[in-house]
Simulated assay, not measured.
Amino acid sequence: MITASSITGLQKAAILLLALGSENSAPLFGQLHEDELKDISIAMARLGRIPAEIVETVCSEFSKGLGEGEVLVGSFDSTERLLSNILPLIRVSQIMEEIRGPIGRTMWEKLENVSDVVLAKYLKNEYPQTVAVILNKIKPEQSSRVLALLPEEFALDIMIRMLKSGQTSKDVLLNIEQTLRQEFVSNISRNFSQDRHEQIANIFNNFDSRLEKTFMSALDHKTPTDAERVRALMFTFEDISHLPENYVSILLSKIDRSMLSLALKGASEELKHCFLNAMSDRAGRLLVEEISSMGPVRLKDVEAAKASIIEIAKNLANEGDIELISNLSENEMLE
């Protein structure tokens, strides 16, 4: 909570405008530069509950009519109501989206705070020329990471357009910014939620089987809906059986044969056949012989071999050589 000793000048201005109300504060808002208006709007939305003594201290010259127990509440809703009496609704919507969305003063700065994966997923469905304009506007290091996540031919087309594009007109930039606000930024919170589930799924992927069962059981008990989503997003060793044969072949080229034999000890027949189908007859026979002659092995060693192969698969996916498919059903993957 704000105290008299910690309050900033920007917060004092926000409190004063809230205390004055929309009618009295309208002329003051009209004199502010857009950046100042945005700064005060952000400060106002983040005020929270302001004690009466703070209000009286900041607004001493306007303290008549403020009772001793009266407090003000600065929130997104109160800020939006106040702005709605001063500015056009479309401008209010833009300001509130920027306040609520990722940190950044402009749309392009906001994009810098968006996950590369989320941004790439959105851009891959846009026109190449639009993507070229967007990637020209954000920082080169972010553009490079996003391009690396896009399909190769699409990314190459975008780079050629970036090379050949001249100066983009202001109208085109405004139109793209408006589209980003309406179609992308408004859905970021849902994407962030998805990212959190993916992050936890990746953590589970790095647990050994004992820890995975322990924590998944606890997650099932505490929040079953989240547990179901995390489980669906996890990529497990058995999920390799869902990969196309050419992907399995690429994976095989990176795996040590002894590691594969150990990982397949006790694996399902479906998964064994998946690897065997991607190998030559001779290599397949040797693999089967190695697994059969291995004898008893420690579960800990098998889990370590599986984890190593999963890590190799993830690295190949990050480099764009393969695409991982988890245990999501076809309908779930399309959502």
Results as ranks from 00 to 15, higher is better:
Glu112Cys: 07
Glu112Asn: 09
Glu112Ser: 10
Val114Asp: 02
Ser115His: 09
Ser115Cys: 08
Asp116Val: 12
Asp116Gln: 09
Val117Pro: 01
Val117Gly: 04
Val117Ile: 11
Val118Gly: 03
Leu119Lys: 02
Leu119Asn: 02
Leu119Met: 09
Ala120Lys: 06
Ala120Glu: 07
Leu123Lys: 01
Leu123Asn: 01
Asn125Glu: 13
Glu126Ala: 13
Tyr127Ser: 07
Pro128His: 09
Pro128Ser: 10
Pro128Val: 08
Gln129Arg: 10
Thr130Asp: 02
Val131Gly: 00
Val133His: 01
Asn136Glu: 11
Asn136Pro: 02
Asn136Gly: 15
Lys137Ala: 15
Ser143Ile: 06
Ser144Gly: 15
Val146Gly: 01
Val146Arg: 00
Val146Thr: 05
Leu147Glu: 00
Leu149Phe: 07
Leu150Asp: 00
Leu150Met: 08
Pro151Val: 08
Pro151Asp: 08
Pro151Thr: 08
Glu153Ile: 14
Phe154Asn: 00
Phe154Asp: 00
Phe154Ala: 02
Phe154Lys: 06
Ala155Met: 04
Leu156Glu: 15
Ile158Pro: 00
Met159Cys: 12
Arg161Ile: 09
Leu163Trp: 07
Leu163Met: 11
Lys164Asn: 15
Ser165Gly: 14
Gln167Asn: 13
Thr168Gln: 08
Thr168His: 07
Ser169Ala: 12
Asp171Ser: 14
Val172Pro: 01
Leu173Lys: 05
Asn175Pro: 00
Ile176Pro: 01
Glu177Cys: 05
Leu180Lys: 03
Leu180Glu: 03
Gln182Cys: 03
Phe184Asn: 01
Val185Ala: 03
Val185Gln: 02
Asn187Arg: 12
Ile188Gln: 02
Ile188Glu: 02
Ile188Met: 11
Ser189Asn: 11
Arg190Trp: 10
Phe192Trp: 12
Ser193Trp: 08
Gln194Asp: 11
Glu198Leu: 13
Ala201Trp: 06
Ala201Pro: 05
